[in-house]
């Protein structure tokens, strides 16, 4: 495994019954980069994310995260690895019986000897770093808007300062201002904390504004990966349609104006 890669997926095959989702999929995530994973509906973007974090067991192939084979780990070693990544699910997946602060405290409880007051303060800090107001700490997830729930989910994913963060459609369902703020938050956190980010998205603006590299999932594998400029050169019909469609042009021109 190359030292620069924090995730290496090789020859991944996932299937549910007869339905093959991935076949011979290879993917790398380099340290400190934001990788955008795109693909049509049903191409298994979320399945790939779930396979990497070990929620779905692949049929074949290897997945190694931070130099460890995810499938082969068990018990304490697996828990230790899980504490080095953070996952933000689509709707935050917050525990509904706990307040936002208590949600963020959940991973912090794994730290031995951490004083209660420090844990509370650290949770408050993460909530604030995720861009939520202080008073949101004591709110329950059901009292928050969708965008705030995503931010709270991000705060929980970042609780233990993981090296890798998985984000599943972080800007889906947010208004353009909120989505833009979230994009900037992801880049700012990556710069401050040196995160590697695995980002599943459909949002072309997000791809333009924060992703260093883009991986396109199609035909049951990573069809191609590279920077935005490289994507624009690809001749594959789906990729071409995706990056040259009317929405893509709008996203690109607004980006140019912004620059």
């Amino acid at each position: 495994m190359s030292a620069a890669n924090v995730i290496e997926v090789r020859g991944l095959r996932t299937q549910f019954g007869d339905h093959v989702v991935h076949d011979g999929l290879d993917l790398d995530l380099r340290r400190g980069e934001i990788l955008g994973v795109v693909g049509g509906s049903g191409t298994g973007k979320s399945v790939l994310l779930r396979s990497i974090v070990g929620l779905i067991r692949p049929r074949a192939g290897s997945i190694s995260v931070l130099g460890r084979d995810v499938g082969a780990l068990s018990g304490a070693a697996r828990e230790a690895l899980e504490r080095r990544w953070g996952v933000m699910f689509q709707d935050g997946a917050l525990f509904s019986a706990l307040t936002v602060r208590e949600n963020v405290e959940v991973p912090l409880r794994a730290v031995p000897g951490l004083a209660d007051a420090d844990r509370r303060a650290l949770a408050g800090l993460k909530v604030s770093m995720a861009g939520l107001p202080v008073k949101a700490c004591d709110a329950f997830p059901s009292e928050l808007s969708g965008g705030m729930r995503k931010r709270a989910g991000l705060a929980r994913a970042l609780a233990l300062d993981p090296e890798i963060v998985f984000l599943d459609e972080p800007t889906a369902g947010l208004d353009p201002i909120g989505a833009d703020a979230f994009d900037r938050l992801i880049v700012a956190l990556r710069d401050a904390l040196n995160l590697s980010v695995f980002l599943v998205t459909h949002d072309l603006d997000t791809l333009h504004s924060c992703c260093d590299r883009i991986a396109v999932l199609a035909e049951k594998r990573v069809l191609t990966s590279g920077t935005m400029a490289q994507m624009l050169q690809i001749q594959h019909p789906w990729v071409h349609e995706y990056f040259h469609g009317p929405r893509a042009r709008a996203a690109m021109s607004s980006r140019r104006k912004g620059d």
Binding site: G124, L125, S128, M129, V134, K135, A188, A192, L193
Partner: peptide, 16 residues
């Protein structure tokens, strides 16, 4: 810069 980032995010005391 990390310390500064965190210092900026520190909740203001009188908010609590």
């Amino acid at each position: 810069s990390l310390i500064d980032t965190v210092a900026k995010a520190l909740p203001v005391a009188d908010d609590v």
